[in-house]
């Protein structure tokens, strides 16, 4: 519930640290949750005292099923690793002092994470979940933006010839 816009699919982060002190890349892996609801609140919150995810030991669709309750609703979720080469960051505005002596970016990394637990209300997590599918973009983007090699060109022109 930190620095998040009011969006459906709220991300709640369990922060137990003081933003003022040593913010350098605190690892919050395992503490980042995406919920199937909007919580109209931004700020620190005793998440770990109230939100108690439990592993069920059940595997569905290749995912380890977890269970938790929020506001009386049962949530079923799974923790997924971010793709190789990617990290999640929590950004915060730089303090005025550090901004002056620094480059253009007003942002500062407050914490980072390499996995995220997303929760469904009432449906089992699966590979078809929108959240899982967002990662498809990375593959597509790579294919779109990868430099074209000579072999690529050759095979493309062969394919074109065959078409005509």
């Amino acid at each position: 519930m930190n620095d998040q816009n009011e969006r459906k699919g709220e991300v709640i982060v369990d922060f137990d640290f003081d933003f003022g002190t040593d913010p350098k890349a605190l690892d919050i892996s395992g503490k980042v949750h995406q919920l199937p609801c909007t919580i109209k609140f931004d700020g620190p919150c005793p998440v770990s005292h109230y939100f108690k995810p439990k592993s069920t030991g059940i595997e569905v669709d290749g995912l380890n099923l977890e269970e938790a309750y929020f506001r009386g609703r049962k949530l079923q979720g799974a923790t997924i690793s971010l793709p190789e080469g990617y990290s999640g960051y929590v950004l915060g505005k730089k303090s005025k002092a550090s901004e002056q002596c620094d480059d253009s970016s007003p942002w500062q990394v407050k914490a980072k994470f390499d996995n995220i637990t997303y929760w469904n209300h009432d449906t089992l997590p699966s590979q078809d979940d929108t959240f899982q599918r967002t990662f498809h973009w990375l593959t597509v983007a790579q294919a779109l933006h990868k430099p074209v090699t000579a072999e690529d060109l050759a095979s493309a022109s062969t394919a074109l010839k065959n078409l005509s």
Partner: peptide, 8 residues
């Protein structure tokens, strides 16, 4: 209490 709205 803080308002919470659910997708469902």
């Amino acid at each position: 209490v803080v308002e919470v709205s659910w997708e469902s």
